[in-house]
Simulated assay, not measured.
Amino acid sequence: MTDDSTPVRFDTKIAVLLRDDLQTWQCLNVTAFLVSGLGTRVPEVIGEPYADADGTEYLPMFRQPVLVFAGSKELMTAAHTRAVGRGVTMAVFTSDLFASGHDEANRAAVRAVKRDAMDLVGLAVHGPRNAVDKILKGASMHS
């Protein structure tokens, strides 16, 4: 028998790292875009659909928390390098994407810049807890 109040400890972690110089609307927008791709590549992070007591159905969501961190441009670059080196599932958002208006233009903007020259403003990672912790070393919880 399981107790619903017992905390669940997941073997993996979903985390978003945002550059600390973004405006509030940018933080929200970047976070939404970054996590939108995780379920397509890592379907096990998605839980079951929701329903209310009236039977109205709602979309499923992540089955585990998404932790949001902030850091400097330099920390963002270091975290990206560590994430690439560890081969974790990752999404990126560059400053160029604020000026593009749709998916094809977004992909073209990322494709046009070499990895080391990207002006990263956000990244999302999913992987083993300890690997994600090492990738985000130096970042603080977003406030």
Rank of each mutant, 00 (worst) to 15 (best):
V92Y: 01
F93V: 10
S95N: 13
L18R: 10
D21S: 13
D103M: 11
R86H: 13
P43G: 02
Q23G: 09
G87Y: 08
A70L: 08
V92N: 00
K134I: 03
E44L: 11
P7L: 05
T24G: 05
R9M: 05
V66H: 00
I135Q: 05
V8F: 02
K73D: 14
S95K: 15
V66G: 00
L18F: 08
A70S: 15
M141Q: 07
L67A: 02
T40I: 04
F10W: 15
K73N: 06
N29H: 12
A91G: 15
L59Q: 09
A112I: 04
L97C: 12
E74N: 12
L59V: 05
V113R: 04
G37Q: 12
H102V: 06
T89S: 08
T89M: 08
G127Y: 09
A112K: 14
P128D: 15
A105M: 10
D52I: 03
S143D: 15
G37C: 07
R63V: 00
H142Q: 13
S143K: 11
S140Q: 14
F93A: 12
T81P: 00
D133E: 12
G37D: 06
F93Y: 15
M90Q: 14
D96F: 03
A117N: 15
A99I: 01
V42R: 10
L97P: 04
D52V: 05
F98Q: 10
W25I: 11
D11A: 08
R63D: 07
A131G: 00
R19A: 05
F62D: 00
T24P: 08
M141D: 01
P128V: 05
F98W: 13
T12D: 03
K114D: 14
D116Y: 08
G101V: 12
P43V: 01
T89V: 14
E48P: 01
G85K: 07
P43A: 02
E44D: 14
R9V: 11
M90N: 06
K73P: 06
Q64A: 07
A79T: 03
W25N: 09
P7A: 09
V8Q: 07
A124C: 14
L59P: 03
T6G: 01
A99V: 03
M61E: 08
T6N: 06
A124D: 03
T56S: 15
L120I: 12
A124S: 13
G101T: 14
R9I: 02
T12L: 04
M90L: 10
V68T: 10
V121Q: 02
V30K: 04
V110S: 04
L59H: 09
V8W: 01
T81D: 07
F69Q: 06
K13L: 02
L18I: 10
D133T: 03
W25L: 13
A91Y: 03
A105S: 11
L17R: 04
D20K: 06
A131R: 01
R115M: 12
G87I: 12
A32G: 15
H142K: 10
R19W: 05
R107G: 07
P49R: 13
H80S: 09
R115K: 12
F62G: 00
R82Y: 04
F69A: 09
L17S: 04
T56Q: 13
F69H: 12
S36L: 06
G101A: 13
A32D: 11
G122L: 05
T6V: 11
